[in-house]
Design a protein around this nucleic acid. Sequence first.
DNA 1: TAATTTCCCTATTTATTATATATATTACCC
DNA 2: GGGTAATATATATAATAAATAGGGAAATTA
Lengths: 133, 133
Amino acid sequence: MKLSSRFRYGLRLLVDLAVNYEKGPVLLRNIADCERISKKYLEQIVITLRTAGLIGATRGSKGGYFLTKDPRKIKITDIYKILEGPFAPVDCLDNPKICVLIRTCATRKLWAKLAECIEETFGGQTLVDLLKK
Amino acid sequence: MKLSSRFRYGLRLLVDLAVNYEKGPVLLRNIADCERISKKYLEQIVITLRTAGLIGATRGSKGGYFLTKDPRKIKITDIYKILEGPFAPVDCLDNPKICVLIRTCATRKLWAKLAECIEETFGGQTLVDLLKK
DNA sequence: TAATTTCCCTATTTATTATATATATTACCC
DNA sequence: GGGTAATATATATAATAAATAGGGAAATTA
């Protein structure tokens, strides 16, 4: 089980924005260089985050991206849901219909437990909690 | 974060073998039909499990696959390592060299915590623990 | 010997991930 | 207003991984 780089990159981007919170918008180019990520890939990720309302943008010179709310109020679990999807490690947990074998499935409970544990690991942590290190 | 179907299928296959433990070898064809999995894909998975020493096989008519040891002694974590790989949700946890940003990485600790939690979820559970349901 | 089944090698399809290209739109500043 | 710098958007391409498929060799049973 690996985290998607979509989520990893997105999270790091948000950390960068958190550092610069209230210091004005941050250039995507800078983040891409700093984090060694393709700027074009970041653009895609940024769209998702903007649609979700986590970040805003201003265009033109002196433009860039910024958090729309206090990083103390942005939970890691929210970011996870947006970029990584549901916590369930298998699709059939949330959509029992897609599996014919639900009744006899010996592993279902284990997957549910796994989903819980992942969510709990993030606990109530927010973006600022990541900065404290 | 999703589990690979490689691991899910492999685990279900092992559960089937556990049910038939000491009742003689099980046909791959039967498992494939039962579990609605491509037999050819199962063949690949089975090779890995056999190489790892978890299962054995006999060819020819009346042949098939079987567990090489008591299902009470086969831990889920072992199967995970064989089919899914390390518990770390990112590669840089086990191989710090592959990432240039280790020193400044704000998320590293979180990933370590996640790896632990995944391992602990499986706890000491074995194949038979899955059957009890 | 014939039937059955694993074993093994290779090819193909499909899906996901990541990067690249090109153009349009917006905002700032002189 | 015009130039420049940045995001916005759509699409194409490349790279990688996941899953399926084919065919035949080797072993086992009867």
